[in-house]
């Protein structure tokens, strides 16, 4: 009887040790996994920030523009015919379409309802009721950084 009890005790302890080891190991893994996912950049886009690298100066010749993203929202970077770099929200103030730079007009234009904005982002023709929101532009070397709300 005593031998049986000893065997049962040893078996139970072995099981408890196994359970403790594996569950603690799994708990540790459950804690480490999110940390690892946090350290490794996720596949989804970054969350909205107030400052983004909007483009390269060398890729933006005078009298051109390009749309970039502030999170889910579009911005537009433009270089005036005289070479100045400016950035605005690309969301048309009429019905939220995305505006574009028209080299032939030499200003910003919205395709949806033919809205026109000048190089200061001011609404000058068509239905847009307000100017485009202006962003701050910093050129660092060849990089163009755009800051919102500055």
């Amino acid at each position: 009887m005593a031998a049986n009890e000893t065997e049962a005790t040893v078996g139970r302890r072995t099981f408890i040790n196994w359970l403790l080891g594996t569950s603690l190991g799994a708990t540790l893994a459950a804690a480490l996994y999110p940390m690892l996912r946090f350290v490794i950049p996720p596949e989804v886009g970054e969350s909205p920030t107030n400052r983004v690298l909007a483009g390269k100066l060398s890729e933006l010749p005078p009298n051109t523009g390009r749309v970039f993203r502030f999170g889910a929202k579009p911005g537009i970077l433009l270089r005036t015919p005289s070479g100045e770099v400016r950035a605005f929200s690309a969301i048309c103030t009429h019905l939220n379409c995305t505006v574009q730079y028209r080299p032939d007009f030499q200003h910003l234009w919205c395709a949806c309802h033919n809205g026109h904005y000048d190089l200061q982002g001011k609404n000058i023709a068509g239905p847009p009721p307000r100017p485009l929101e202006a962003f701050k532009v910093d050129v660092v070397g060849d990089d163009i950084f755009v800051t919102k709300g500055a």
């Binding site: 040790n17 359970l19 403790l20 799994a26 708990t27 459950a30």
Partner: peptide, 20 residues
Amino acid sequence: AVSLVVILLAAVALLLKTRS
């Protein structure tokens, strides 16, 4: 859910180990 089950098991195992 799996993590919670594992944590629960760890707690049970700890309890049993303490008793033993």
